[in-house]
Design a protein around this nucleic acid. Structure first.
Length: 239
DNA sequence: CAGATTTGACCCAC
DNA sequence: GTGGGTCAAATCTG
């Protein structure tokens, strides 16, 4: 890949960091099995621009920025990292606000290729998925002051396939375009908000839990072929 | 071929 | 000096 060519960046292109509003959103994904799954979804279009191993953490952190950065100069970014201690928790840190006229709808009307791919895999499931996501999204949008947010899924029979499932979820979580809408048909959410303030910037605490533990999530019979998720992403267990 | 992701290097803040 | 955040070339995927 790289030859010994050191890339020097012109100073004019260097931007100072920091000074952007930042808030964190924790997403807890739990199931009876304790496995991690679920999707954190904003209807924004994110594009991954980096990933890094963070000192003291087992899982790398993934960096995303708004796709409209160039087009509309939207500087919003987000970081996603799986909690070290509790793998069922995903920490999402947002930085900056979207200045773009984000395309919430677009997803629904024009699924990306990636989505199509996913859809292809779990075709049987999606009908109302979007609805669920949509409401979640709406809530997020309207409660910009909150910032803790949980997803609890009912049990799910994950036998020897948990790995695959894990991956698929992770994939959804991590991959921006993909995670967009329809995610395994989580049809019902119950939200509870915990206003929570963190030290500085604006915070968003959103707490969402499913009180319904019976939901079969049949939608979840995600048969994602392994091949589909081969691409690694940060949440794969190291080792 | 275009768009997305990966990945090592670069740069800044602490 | 080190770690975290970003850049951008290379690579991958549809």
């Amino acid at each position: 890949m790289e030859n010994s060519t050191k890339i020097k960046r012109p100073k004019s292109l260097i931007k100072k960091r920091k000074s952007m509003p930042r808030w964190k959103e924790q997403v807890k994904i739990c199931t009876n099995t304790g496995l991690f799954k679920g999707s954190l979804d904003d209807d924004y279009s994110w594009r991954k621009y980096g990933q890094k191993d963070i000192l003291g953490t087992k899982f790398p952190r993934a960096y995303y920025r708004c796709k409209h950065r160039n087009g509309q100069g939207c500087l919003a970014t987000k970081q996603i990292q799986r909690s070290d201690e509790d793998p069922t928790t995903i920490e999402v840190t947002y930085r900056g606000r979207h200045t773009c006229s984000q395309p919430k709808i677009s997803k629904k009307n024009f699924p990306s290729k990636l989505e199509n791919k996913k859809l292809h895999n779990d075709q049987k499931n999606q009908p109302q998925t979007q609805g669920a996501n949509f409401s979640l999204k709406d809530e997020l949008e309207e409660t910009k002051e909150e910032n803790f947010h949980w997803f609890c899924f009912p049990s799910l029979s994950i036998g020897s396939e948990n790995e695959t499932i894990m991956e698929s979820f992770s994939d959804a979580l991590i991959s921006p375009e993909t995670s967009k809408s329809n995610f395994y048909g989580l049809s019902e959410y119950h939200f509870g908000y915990n206003a929570q303030t963190s030290e500085s910037d604006m915070n968003e605490t959103l707490s969402a839990t499913t009180s319904d533990t019976n939901s079969p999530i049949h939608d979840l019979d995600i048969l994602l072929d392994r091949g589909d998720f081969d691409t690694d992403f940060p949440f794969n267990t190291p080792e």
